[in-house]
């Protein structure tokens, strides 16, 4: 970990209609660091990273990526910036019209213009890195289980060797053993690439395992952020309630439909 800041987010705001989702989110991601953003369902975790990746346009705020203001980029510059990123989507988001190997090789073939044969070799190798044999490469994504889809999505996210990897709920919906396998893979991949990582989760086991630093989002703001070891002694009631999963406390779940 170094002191160089890879991503600096300041005052990020985003509303959908009258519903305010992000209300001034601030955080930094340092080079080589693994930041985990925790928060309840619907608290705006996915929206935050989608803004960072330029998949959604924030209403206000600044996002500096390696010192470049990303909110003002568009078109080719925007796509160029994507070379720095790898993203693992919440629902895996594999391309179901393509076989598994081509999913993994996609960023190499389309994004970087590598020839198919070479990209395919790399894809098979990346599948190996997430514990899947070459024969899986021939299958279609629909033929895989949820855990395998997540692994393929992980292989796809790391295939182009990005500098920053974003994981959106990597372990949600998996059994505890598969979740731990994914956690180990995340740690390994991030370390092998020397990448910086942002993970989103509400899984505390996963958080404790993969985080260097933890930030908690609540009501559209980061209400607490510190190194991972201090999470049990945060002195913050919100964090305490969240990590122990208690129904009563300062956080009241919005049961009513909005």
């Amino acid at each position: 970990m170094s002191d160089r800041v890879k991503i600096a987010v300041r005052g990020l705001k985003k509303s959908f209609g009258s519903k305010v989702v992000l209300d001034g989110v601030d955080f930094d991601l340092h080079e080589g660091e693994s930041l985990v953003i925790i928060g309840g369902s619907g608290s705006g975790k996915s929206v935050t990273v989608k803004c960072v990746l330029g998949l959604m346009e924030p209403d206000a705020g600044s996002i500096l990526i390696d010192g470049v203001e990303a909110t003002r980029l568009a078109g080719a510059e925007r796509l160029g910036l994507m070379h720095k990123f790898g993203m693992l989507f919440q629902g895996a988001a594999l391309f179901d019209s393509l076989p598994v190997w081509e999913n993994v090789a996609f960023g190499l073939i389309q994004g970087k213009g590598m020839n198919r044969a070479r990209a395919r070799d790399i894809a098979i190798q990346k599948l190996g890195a997430v514990g899947l044999g070459p024969e899986v490469g021939m299958l279609s994504p629909a033929e895989l289980s949820g855990g395998m889809q997540k692994r393929v999505a992980l292989a796809r996210a790391i295939a182009a060797e990005p500098e920053i990897i974003v994981f959106d709920e990597p372990t949600t919906g998996l059994d505890p053993i598969m979740a731990d396998v994914i956690n180990d893979l995340i740690i390994k991949c991030v370390k092998d690439l020397g990448a910086s990582a942002i993970s989103i989760t509400h899984d505390m086991v996963s958080t404790r395992k993969i985080a260097n630093r933890v930030a908690m989002i609540y009501k559209g703001r980061i209400i607490w952020s510190d190194i991972a070891q201090r999470i049990d002694h945060s002195g913050n009631q919100f964090v305490d309630q969240f990590i122990h999963g208690r129904a009563d406390g300062p956080i009241q779940m919005e049961i009513r439909a909005l």
Binding site: K50, G80, M87, G91, A93, F95, F106, G107, Q110, A160
Partner: peptide, 25 residues
């Protein structure tokens, strides 16, 4: 149906993160 499914399952977002312009692709 095909493009709509890709939209709601975030496959179109995934295209952008892989440096591919979804519009062109």
């Amino acid at each position: 149906a095909e493009i709509g499914t890709m939209r709601v399952t975030e496959q179109i977002d995934a295209l952008s993160t892989l440096s591919t312009n979804p519009f062109k692709y």
